[in-house]
């Protein structure tokens, strides 16, 4: 990856994590490394899963 592409990816990841969506690539990498036997969630399911996790508990997470 070029330097510019890396910076853009970092900014994109920052913006997405700000609203509670972690990196899908990192999830895929984790699943491939640790659970090769299990089928990872699709990007769409992953997104819905994270959306429900962010707002569906007491730790929803933002301040006044």
């Amino acid at each position: 990856m070029t330097r510019t592409a890396r910076i853009i990816k970092a900014l994109r990841d920052t913006a997405r994590l700000m609203v509670g969506v972690p990196s899908y690539d990192a999830y895929r990498a984790h699943m491939a490394a640790h659970h090769p036997d299990r089928e990872p969630m699709s990007e769409r399911t992953f997104f819905r899963n994270r959306q429900d996790a962010r707002y569906g508990s007491a730790g929803g997470g933002r301040c006044c």
Binding site: A10, T14, L17, P22
Partner: peptide, 18 residues
Amino acid sequence: RADGLDYVPTNRNILFGH
């Protein structure tokens, strides 16, 4: 407890933003 969902080792600058 890495699970790619709640527990994800994250770059410090990205985490700072979060």
